[in-house]
């Protein structure tokens, strides 16, 4: 009798506590915490690898300038470089990781970060020498967050948002090239991330008016808007190669323009 009571209690508990679906209001009210809500390029590349491992080294770009005329341009490019670091990790290319790590730290220094961030550069080099790809992904994530915190500490939220936007625009550029080379639908569909782009745009929208009006942020927001639109085909229209080509071209243009040493 007692066993039956326990079983029925568990059964009833299961029925009443099974998760009900969330309502639209509940989903809309969910919190957004950038260091957790926004994935890292490493997660994106892990998914791309599952869909069809690309030749990551073939997606490298030429080294860029080591300094930029404005802090906003520096921040955007620092983000893009972090993504380059993740690519080098995927390619298991220790030398490329070290080269990119040095560039990241050089730009971080230009933004006025503290010694604890600069020490990360040595850690990146050490892990690269040991071919510790696991630790390198975590180190790149930690370095990005430390730089973002340093920017928040300098009351420069715009730069923190631009670092994230820069990382993702470069990741989408690379991801779209990889997906087009692969041609598989599973790869192409990974580029369909309008919710993530909307989140990046929301971060920029919450910046003070003065910060939002600058040319780098304006151009970044315009690119994100265009990309979000490309990721959201009208009902009945497929999300396929054509849209991914547009996404690739749009993000490539921004990344290329921003990494040229022009104000």
């Amino acid at each position: 009798m007692k066993r039956a009571a326990v079983f029925l209690f568990v059964a009833f508990a299961g029925v009443f506590t099974a998760g009900a679906d969330l309502t639209a209001r509940q989903m809309k009210g969910a919190e957004h915490v950038a260091p957790v809500s926004i994935p890292t390029p490493a997660e994106f590349f892990a998914a791309i690898d599952k869909a069809g491992k690309p030749d990551w080294a073939s997606l490298y770009r030429e080294p860029g300038p080591t300094s930029y005329p404005t802090r906003t341009q520096t921040a955007l490019n620092l983000g893009a470089l972090v993504t380059d670091g993740y690519m080098a990790v995927e390619a298991q290319d220790g030398q490329q990781v070290k080269n990119t790590g040095k560039e990241i730290i050089a730009l971080a220094k230009a933004l006025g970060v503290g010694e604890d961030v600069l020490v990360r550069g040595k850690s990146i080099g050490d892990f690269a020498d040991k071919n510790d790809w696991f630790a390198l992904r975590e180190e790149l994530d930690a370095t990005t967050n430390e730089v973002r915190r340093a920017m928040a500490g300098q009351r420069d939220a715009a730069l923190a948002s631009l670092i994230t936007a820069g990382a993702w625009l470069r990741a989408i550029q690379v991801g779209s090239r990889a997906a087009l080379l692969n041609g598989e639908e599973q790869s192409l569909m990974l580029l369909r991330q309008p919710a993530l782009i909307a989140m990046l745009r929301e971060d920029l929208r919450q910046l003070p008016d003065k910060a939002r009006g600058g040319p780098v942020i304006t151009r970044t927001d315009m690119t994100l808007t265009a990309v979000e639109d490309m990721m959201t085909p009208p009902d009945g229209e497929p999300f396929g190669t054509e849209r991914v080509v547009s996404i690739r071209d749009t993000t490539s243009q921004l990344v290329s323009d921003m990494s040229s040493n022009k104000p």
Binding site: L22, G29, V36, S37, I38, A47
Partner: peptide, 12 residues
């Protein structure tokens, strides 16, 4: 309850 929005990638 508290809810957090996260962005996940298919297959991960």
């Amino acid at each position: 309850v508290r809810r957090l929005r996260v962005n996940l990638l298919a297959g991960n």
